[in-house]
Design a protein around this nucleic acid. Sequence first.
DNA 1: TCCCATTGGTATTTTTTCATACCGTAGAAG
DNA 2: CTTCTACGGTATGAAAAAATACCAATGGGA
Lengths: 240, 240
Amino acid sequence: MKETQLGSLLRPVRAGNAFEETVERLLQAIKLGVVPHGERLPSERDLAVHLGISRVTLREAIRSLQEAGYLDVRRGRYGGAFVLYLPPDPSDGDLAEAVNQMGAGDLADALTFRMAVECGAAQILATTSLDPSQRAVLLRRLSEVNDAAPADYRRLDTAFHLSIAELTGSPLLAAACADARLRVTDLLNAIPVLGPNIAHAAVQHQAIVSAILAGDPDGASRAVAEHLEGTAALLRGFLA
Amino acid sequence: MKETQLGSLLRPVRAGNAFEETVERLLQAIKLGVVPHGERLPSERDLAVHLGISRVTLREAIRSLQEAGYLDVRRGRYGGAFVLYLPPDPSDGDLAEAVNQMGAGDLADALTFRMAVECGAAQILATTSLDPSQRAVLLRRLSEVNDAAPADYRRLDTAFHLSIAELTGSPLLAAACADARLRVTDLLNAIPVLGPNIAHAAVQHQAIVSAILAGDPDGASRAVAEHLEGTAALLRGFLA
DNA sequence: TCCCATTGGTATTTTTTCATACCGTAGAAG
DNA sequence: CTTCTACGGTATGAAAAAATACCAATGGGA
């Protein structure tokens, strides 16, 4: 039983080599829509600094994404790496395939992790006294999701969820929530965006924001839990 | 405002070089008491595999810990790297120094992060239906803390907290809680272990376990929050 | 007593990653 | 039309890390 705890601490220092990790990171930023279609990534020199890697390694990663069709790289001033990726319009088969591509254990792990960190973040934000500008950010993100065109829905939904974590002011917590979201992106992207689901999600989003603004930690946490449990149950249902 | 979200995703891929990260990881495993005084670390070959680094790099890390007096390395069969570290008996000055060694922002970040993930973990565990052996683990860890000799208190307290995360069955969540704890280890180790504090903590630990076993997520989360808020407030009070 | 499995110690080579400097290009500003 | 400049593109040498193979010591068990 002590070995389990050793496992938590002596887990891998490196998830892979720098190149692979960079490709993964950039790809997720693209799939998450943090850099939307048509927009430009930061310049190689800036990105390399932010990612803490050399420009050479970064270029290799960008090149492989370019060859995979995710980026259009243009030279010269006002050039850069432009995102070509458009979120796919999912059909039913994709979801089953996506779910079963990752192991059942990994799926459960990711869903549990996401539930924990997002509930925790909402709870903390509800405990915090928010200034007017923070409230404004939260409300704006909420209305952006509600007004979203179908093609933009996932992206703005992500932005809404991440904003909650970011507003806590804890970069570690924000990173954890981003990481949790990354692990289910492919699955969420494979779920068709349907009217009734969106309407249901809108009600839940509203409940989350209301609880946070009312300073109700338990309510905020429960609202997030209910919201996430919906998609979690859906995904679990597709396990072979 | 979009730049903040970019920051969460395009954060550093590498925290430092493999050597430094490995030293840090091992040192924290030692300071946390996951491998207690007199015990042996896994063999170099095993460790290198688990940490995902080469044996050469691992050896450099072990060597620097040996030279710093944390390890006693012996060769031959039944040899290995034995932990020499004994938790210090803190005096008042140490705490102020330790608190102000990390920035005020970093302290707030670490405390917020810890609050979120530990509350989330307790909440999830309270939602889960636990089988008898899981209940037994939780109760045993609780009694171990209560019966702990002063020198073992921190170590068993850590074990108790980590067990909650591990019992959720999510390695990601367990790793996040371990990481959160790591970030405040030095601070917690600098807090004198006093009778009244231990008694107070024992009551709170009991409340946490009771809420979890009763299947009360809100109660479990609130109990953890109250428990952590105590030390958090203490630490914040030492900020210069 | 001697063996030998298990452990740390060392040496060598290859691969990855980094740091630095410099080149080529496109587009806006003059 | 020229120039300036912020970009990507390229080259090269050094450093870090990994892979591999092999050496050396220890101590329990045959």
